[in-house]
Computed example of a mutant assay.
Amino acid sequence: MSGVVYAQSLDSLFVTANKLYQQESYDEALSLYQEIENNNVESAALYYNMANIYYKTNQVAPSIYYYEKAIKLEPNNKDITFNLEFAKRMTLDNIEALPKSLGQKFRDGIILRFTYNTWAIIAVSLAFLFALLFLLYHFSYSTEKKRIYFITSILAVIFVSLSSFFALKNYQYQETTITAIIFALQTQVKSAPTNSSEVNFELHEGTKVFVLESLDNWRKIKIADGKTGWMKEADLREL
């Protein structure tokens, strides 16, 4: 099957799944969405619809998991953000997050505002703008216009540098930061990666954690309030 026909087949499948979703045939729609996902398709719309089905059928962990996957692809999508926050209300763990530093606020508010692909596109677009402004500056005979083109080209270079920097930092953060959602109804977080070790605290389905280390079938995790511990790999699913 050619790539074009293959893509059209998946698009047709997505349209059919959406119709079933609108008809509230959630099991059938979800089955088709999962078939699309199994073909290595990454789509915010796909994940969003899957999350909605899980939410409507009161499946806490999968709904939050797929909302989180959707928001990673479209961090400024208000519908996804709203539904994610709504789904989080179904979780049992009431974890008070540590205050963010200025650096963390800047990272979350600016660098992670767009995906690294979007920042890269912005950088390339600004680079083309700089090239155009440079040509206009070079071929312009008006002193006033030359000054305007020169100043705006310098600004374009500055913003190219900034957006490139943001793209790099965003990429590095995404590559080095592993998050996961608890899928077990209840799980124990231990002081060491052994069954006999002391229990530090317990977590419940739907809670988001940061994965710090891996050892065999254990994962060292950190939660929003800074607490850390080890839990079974089978009890969570990495995003």
Rank of each mutant, 00 (worst) to 15 (best):
S2M: 12
G3A: 11
Q8V: 06
Q8L: 03
L10F: 13
D11W: 07
V15W: 01
V15M: 04
T16W: 03
N18H: 07
Y21E: 03
Y21L: 15
Y21G: 07
Q23H: 12
E24P: 02
Y26H: 11
D27H: 14
L30W: 09
S31K: 04
L32M: 13
Q34R: 13
E35I: 04
I36W: 03
N39V: 00
S43K: 04
S43C: 08
A44W: 04
A45H: 08
A45G: 00
I53F: 10
Y55W: 15
N58R: 09
V60Q: 01
S63A: 06
Y65M: 06
Y66P: 07
K69A: 03
K69T: 04
A70P: 02
L73N: 02
E74Y: 03
N83T: 09
A87H: 11
K88E: 12
K88L: 14
R89M: 11
I95Y: 08
E96V: 13
A97F: 03
A97I: 01
P99K: 11
G103M: 10
G103F: 05
D108Q: 10
G109D: 09
F114T: 00
T115K: 08
T115Y: 13
N117F: 03
N117M: 09
T118N: 04
I121T: 15
V124P: 08
A127G: 07
A127E: 01
A127P: 01
F128E: 05
A131Q: 13
L132G: 08
L135D: 06
Y137M: 13
H138T: 06
F139C: 05
F139T: 10
S140P: 08
S140K: 00
Y141F: 01
E144Q: 11
K145P: 00
K146T: 03
Y149S: 11
Y149R: 14
F150G: 01
S153F: 08
I154M: 12
I154R: 08
L155W: 05
V157I: 10
F159Q: 02
S161W: 03
L162N: 12
L162Y: 05
F165V: 01
F166L: 10
A167W: 07
A167R: 07
L168S: 07
L168T: 13
Y171S: 15
E175Q: 15
T177N: 14
T177F: 13
T177G: 08
I181Q: 01
A192L: 05
S196L: 14
S197M: 15
S197T: 15
V199C: 09
V199K: 13
E202N: 09
H204R: 10
H204A: 00
E205R: 15
G206Q: 01
F210S: 09
E213Q: 15
R219L: 15
I223N: 05
A224W: 01
G226W: 02
K227M: 12
T228F: 03
T228M: 09
W230E: 05
M231C: 13
E233W: 12
A234M: 14
L236W: 00
L236P: 01
